[in-house]
Amino acid sequence: MNTSKTDWPSSLTDEELDELDRYLRAHTQENDTHLLLDGVHGLLSALAVGPLQVLPDEWLPEVLHEPFDDEAEGNRVLALLAKLNDSISAELDVDAYEPILGEIDTDTGPALSAAGWCEGFSRGIDLRAALWESRLADDPQLMELLGPVMALAVDDGVLSAEAEFEKLSDEEYDDCLTQIPAVLGAVGQYWLAKPVTEAELEAMVQRHSEPEIQEGTAPRHRSGHWVH
Protein backbone atom coordinates (compact mmCIF):
# COMPACT_ATOMS: atom_id res chain seq x y z
CA MET A 1 0.00 0.00 0.00
CA ASN A 2 1.06 3.56 -0.70
CA THR A 3 0.27 5.59 2.41
CA SER A 4 0.42 9.25 3.15
CA LYS A 5 2.73 10.49 5.87
CA THR A 6 1.62 13.71 7.55
CA ASP A 7 2.25 15.45 10.82
CA TRP A 8 -1.48 15.74 11.53
CA PRO A 9 -1.90 14.06 14.94
CA SER A 10 -5.08 12.11 14.09
CA SER A 11 -3.50 10.32 11.12
CA LEU A 12 -2.67 6.66 11.54
CA THR A 13 0.97 5.74 11.81
CA ASP A 14 2.48 3.43 9.22
CA GLU A 15 2.39 0.65 11.82
CA GLU A 16 -1.33 1.21 12.47
CA LEU A 17 -2.08 1.27 8.75
CA ASP A 18 -0.18 -2.00 8.32
CA GLU A 19 -2.10 -3.53 11.23
CA LEU A 20 -5.47 -2.56 9.71
CA ASP A 21 -4.32 -3.72 6.29
CA ARG A 22 -3.35 -7.12 7.69
CA TYR A 23 -6.71 -7.53 9.40
CA LEU A 24 -8.67 -6.68 6.25
CA ARG A 25 -6.53 -9.00 4.12
CA ALA A 26 -6.93 -11.83 6.62
CA HIS A 27 -10.71 -11.54 6.43
CA THR A 28 -11.16 -11.51 2.68
CA GLN A 29 -10.98 -14.17 0.02
CA GLU A 30 -9.76 -14.06 -3.55
CA ASN A 31 -12.37 -12.81 -6.01
CA ASP A 32 -14.77 -11.56 -3.33
CA THR A 33 -16.06 -7.99 -3.10
CA HIS A 34 -14.67 -7.07 0.32
CA LEU A 35 -12.79 -3.79 0.48
CA LEU A 36 -9.13 -3.73 1.45
CA LEU A 37 -7.39 -0.74 3.02
CA ASP A 38 -7.34 1.34 -0.17
CA GLY A 39 -11.04 0.66 -0.71
CA VAL A 40 -11.94 1.54 2.87
CA HIS A 41 -10.02 4.80 2.48
CA GLY A 42 -11.91 5.57 -0.72
CA LEU A 43 -15.24 4.80 0.93
CA LEU A 44 -14.55 7.04 3.91
CA SER A 45 -13.21 9.77 1.63
CA ALA A 46 -16.50 9.85 -0.29
CA LEU A 47 -18.40 10.13 2.97
CA ALA A 48 -16.15 12.91 4.24
CA VAL A 49 -16.93 15.17 1.28
CA GLY A 50 -20.49 14.02 0.64
CA PRO A 51 -23.82 15.80 0.95
CA LEU A 52 -24.98 14.34 4.26
CA GLN A 53 -23.37 12.65 7.25
CA VAL A 54 -23.25 8.86 7.16
CA LEU A 55 -22.98 7.27 10.59
CA PRO A 56 -20.77 4.24 11.36
CA ASP A 57 -23.83 2.01 11.68
CA GLU A 58 -24.32 2.52 7.94
CA TRP A 59 -20.78 2.27 6.63
CA LEU A 60 -19.28 -0.37 8.92
CA PRO A 61 -21.24 -3.19 7.19
CA GLU A 62 -19.43 -2.20 3.98
CA VAL A 63 -16.11 -2.89 5.73
CA LEU A 64 -16.69 -5.64 8.31
CA HIS A 65 -18.41 -8.85 7.24
CA GLU A 66 -17.97 -11.34 10.07
CA PRO A 67 -17.82 -11.38 13.88
CA PHE A 68 -14.56 -10.58 15.60
CA ASP A 69 -12.57 -13.43 17.12
CA ASP A 70 -12.59 -11.69 20.50
CA GLU A 71 -13.60 -8.42 22.13
CA ALA A 72 -10.07 -7.02 22.25
CA GLU A 73 -9.59 -7.56 18.52
CA GLY A 74 -12.94 -5.94 17.79
CA ASN A 75 -12.20 -2.89 19.91
CA ARG A 76 -8.80 -2.49 18.26
CA VAL A 77 -10.10 -2.73 14.69
CA LEU A 78 -12.99 -0.36 15.41
CA ALA A 79 -10.59 2.12 17.00
CA LEU A 80 -8.32 2.02 13.94
CA LEU A 81 -11.27 2.49 11.58
CA ALA A 82 -12.54 5.42 13.65
CA LYS A 83 -9.12 7.02 13.61
CA LEU A 84 -8.82 6.51 9.85
CA ASN A 85 -12.24 8.07 9.36
CA ASP A 86 -11.41 11.09 11.53
CA SER A 87 -8.05 11.59 9.83
CA ILE A 88 -9.55 12.16 6.39
CA SER A 89 -11.46 15.33 7.25
CA ALA A 90 -8.53 16.56 9.35
CA GLU A 91 -6.09 16.04 6.48
CA LEU A 92 -8.41 17.70 3.97
CA ASP A 93 -8.69 20.72 6.29
CA VAL A 94 -4.94 21.28 6.22
CA ASP A 95 -4.31 20.21 2.59
CA ALA A 96 -2.44 17.12 3.77
CA TYR A 97 -4.71 14.46 2.26
CA GLU A 98 -3.32 11.72 0.04
CA PRO A 99 -5.27 8.67 -1.12
CA ILE A 100 -4.20 5.24 0.03
CA LEU A 101 -3.54 3.38 -3.20
CA GLY A 102 -2.94 -0.22 -4.17
CA GLU A 103 -0.01 -1.53 -6.14
CA ILE A 104 -0.04 -3.69 -9.25
CA ASP A 105 2.68 -5.46 -11.20
CA THR A 106 3.30 -4.21 -14.73
CA ASP A 107 5.76 -5.07 -17.47
CA THR A 108 7.94 -2.23 -16.25
CA GLY A 109 7.62 -3.02 -12.55
CA PRO A 110 5.25 -2.11 -9.71
CA ALA A 111 2.81 0.76 -10.31
CA LEU A 112 0.20 2.53 -8.22
CA SER A 113 -3.43 1.62 -8.86
CA ALA A 114 -6.53 3.61 -7.90
CA ALA A 115 -8.88 0.69 -8.60
CA GLY A 116 -9.49 -0.23 -4.96
CA TRP A 117 -9.76 3.39 -3.83
CA CYS A 118 -12.23 4.16 -6.63
CA GLU A 119 -14.30 1.07 -5.79
CA GLY A 120 -14.57 2.27 -2.21
CA PHE A 121 -15.34 5.83 -3.31
CA SER A 122 -18.14 4.50 -5.52
CA ARG A 123 -19.59 2.51 -2.61
CA GLY A 124 -19.45 5.60 -0.43
CA ILE A 125 -21.49 7.46 -3.03
CA ASP A 126 -23.89 4.49 -3.12
CA LEU A 127 -24.75 5.10 0.54
CA ARG A 128 -26.30 8.45 -0.48
CA ALA A 129 -26.99 7.44 -4.07
CA ALA A 130 -30.26 9.35 -4.48
CA LEU A 131 -28.64 12.67 -3.57
CA TRP A 132 -25.53 12.16 -5.67
CA GLU A 133 -27.40 10.88 -8.71
CA SER A 134 -29.99 13.66 -8.79
CA ARG A 135 -27.33 16.34 -8.39
CA LEU A 136 -25.00 14.78 -10.96
CA ALA A 137 -27.88 14.70 -13.43
CA ASP A 138 -28.93 18.30 -12.76
CA ASP A 139 -25.65 20.14 -12.16
CA PRO A 140 -22.79 19.78 -14.67
CA GLN A 141 -20.45 21.50 -12.22
CA LEU A 142 -20.38 18.50 -9.89
CA MET A 143 -19.74 16.15 -12.79
CA GLU A 144 -16.86 18.36 -13.92
CA LEU A 145 -15.34 18.49 -10.43
CA LEU A 146 -15.35 14.70 -10.23
CA GLY A 147 -13.79 14.34 -13.68
CA PRO A 148 -10.33 13.02 -12.67
CA VAL A 149 -11.81 10.46 -10.24
CA MET A 150 -14.33 9.33 -12.84
CA ALA A 151 -11.58 8.96 -15.42
CA LEU A 152 -9.59 6.73 -13.05
CA ALA A 153 -12.68 4.70 -12.17
CA VAL A 154 -13.56 4.08 -15.80
CA ASP A 155 -9.94 3.32 -16.71
CA ASP A 156 -9.74 0.74 -13.92
CA GLY A 157 -13.09 -0.82 -14.78
CA VAL A 158 -14.86 0.33 -11.61
CA LEU A 159 -17.35 2.39 -13.62
CA SER A 160 -18.67 1.75 -17.09
CA ALA A 161 -18.64 4.59 -19.61
CA GLU A 162 -21.67 5.26 -21.78
CA ALA A 163 -19.45 6.18 -24.73
CA GLU A 164 -16.28 4.53 -25.98
CA PHE A 165 -13.45 5.41 -23.62
CA GLU A 166 -9.81 5.54 -24.63
CA LYS A 167 -7.47 4.17 -21.99
CA LEU A 168 -5.46 6.77 -20.12
CA SER A 169 -1.77 6.97 -20.85
CA ASP A 170 0.58 6.43 -17.92
CA GLU A 171 1.12 10.18 -17.74
CA GLU A 172 -2.61 10.92 -17.79
CA TYR A 173 -3.25 8.28 -15.14
CA ASP A 174 -0.57 9.71 -12.86
CA ASP A 175 -1.92 13.22 -13.44
CA CYS A 176 -5.40 12.11 -12.36
CA LEU A 177 -3.90 10.50 -9.24
CA THR A 178 -2.24 13.77 -8.25
CA GLN A 179 -5.56 15.59 -8.65
CA ILE A 180 -7.50 13.42 -6.17
CA PRO A 181 -6.84 15.63 -3.10
CA ALA A 182 -7.92 18.75 -5.01
CA VAL A 183 -11.02 16.95 -6.31
CA LEU A 184 -12.06 15.99 -2.79
CA GLY A 185 -11.50 19.51 -1.52
CA ALA A 186 -13.55 20.98 -4.35
CA VAL A 187 -16.38 18.47 -3.94
CA GLY A 188 -16.56 19.11 -0.21
CA GLN A 189 -16.78 22.85 -0.85
CA TYR A 190 -19.43 22.23 -3.52
CA TRP A 191 -21.80 20.56 -1.06
CA LEU A 192 -21.19 23.32 1.49
CA ALA A 193 -22.02 26.00 -1.08
CA LYS A 194 -24.97 24.07 -2.56
CA PRO A 195 -26.45 22.03 0.29
CA VAL A 196 -29.11 19.39 -0.11
CA THR A 197 -32.57 20.81 -0.76
CA GLU A 198 -35.82 19.78 0.91
CA ALA A 199 -36.99 18.24 -2.36
CA GLU A 200 -33.82 16.14 -2.60
CA LEU A 201 -34.24 14.98 1.00
CA GLU A 202 -37.84 13.98 0.33
CA ALA A 203 -36.76 12.02 -2.76
CA MET A 204 -34.07 10.25 -0.73
CA VAL A 205 -36.55 9.30 2.01
CA GLN A 206 -39.01 8.04 -0.59
CA ARG A 207 -36.32 5.98 -2.25
CA HIS A 208 -35.29 4.40 1.06
CA SER A 209 -38.91 3.52 1.78
CA GLU A 210 -39.33 1.61 -1.47
CA PRO A 211 -39.79 -2.17 -1.10
CA GLU A 212 -36.67 -4.33 -1.15
CA ILE A 213 -35.77 -6.18 -4.36
CA GLN A 214 -37.95 -9.24 -4.66
CA GLU A 215 -36.31 -12.66 -4.48
CA GLY A 216 -35.38 -13.90 -7.91
CA THR A 217 -34.85 -10.48 -9.44
CA ALA A 218 -31.46 -9.25 -10.52
CA PRO A 219 -29.61 -7.47 -7.70
CA ARG A 220 -28.56 -3.88 -8.16
CA HIS A 221 -24.90 -3.55 -9.09
CA ARG A 222 -22.86 -2.45 -6.09
CA SER A 223 -20.97 0.25 -7.91
CA GLY A 224 -20.76 2.04 -11.20
CA HIS A 225 -24.35 3.23 -11.35
CA TRP A 226 -23.82 6.80 -10.17
CA VAL A 227 -22.58 8.15 -13.49
CA HIS A 228 -25.33 9.02 -15.94
Rank of each mutant, 00 (worst) to 15 (best):
A90E: 11
H65A: 07
D93Q: 15
L101H: 01
L64C: 03
R76H: 07
V49N: 07
L80N: 02
N75D: 11
V77A: 04
I100F: 04
R76A: 01
A79K: 15
E58Q: 11
D70R: 13
V54K: 03
E71G: 05
L60H: 05
W59K: 07
E98V: 11
K83C: 04
N75W: 06
G50M: 04
V54S: 06
I100K: 07
Q53D: 14
L47V: 00
E91A: 12
V54G: 01
A82C: 08
V94D: 04
L55K: 14
L101E: 03
L80I: 10
L80H: 01
L64Y: 02
A48F: 02
L78G: 00
L64S: 04
E66N: 06
L60D: 01
L80C: 00
V54Y: 06
W59T: 06
G74V: 13
V77H: 05
E73C: 07
W59H: 06
V49S: 05
S87D: 02
L64F: 06
L81N: 02
S89N: 13
Q53S: 11
D57Q: 13
V63M: 12
S87L: 06
V77W: 10
N85C: 10
A82R: 13
A48G: 02
P61T: 11
V49Y: 00
A82S: 15
A72N: 08
P99L: 10
L60A: 03
V77Q: 08
L80T: 01
L64A: 02
V63Y: 13
P56A: 08
A79F: 12
P67H: 07
A96M: 08
A96P: 02
E66Q: 15
E58V: 11
L80W: 05
I88A: 00
D57I: 14
V94S: 15
N75L: 14
G50A: 03
D86G: 05
W59C: 01
A90R: 12
L78T: 01
I88E: 04
E91L: 12
D86A: 14
L78Q: 01
E91C: 15
L55N: 09
L92P: 04
I88H: 08
E62V: 11
E58W: 07
E73G: 02
V63C: 09
L55W: 11
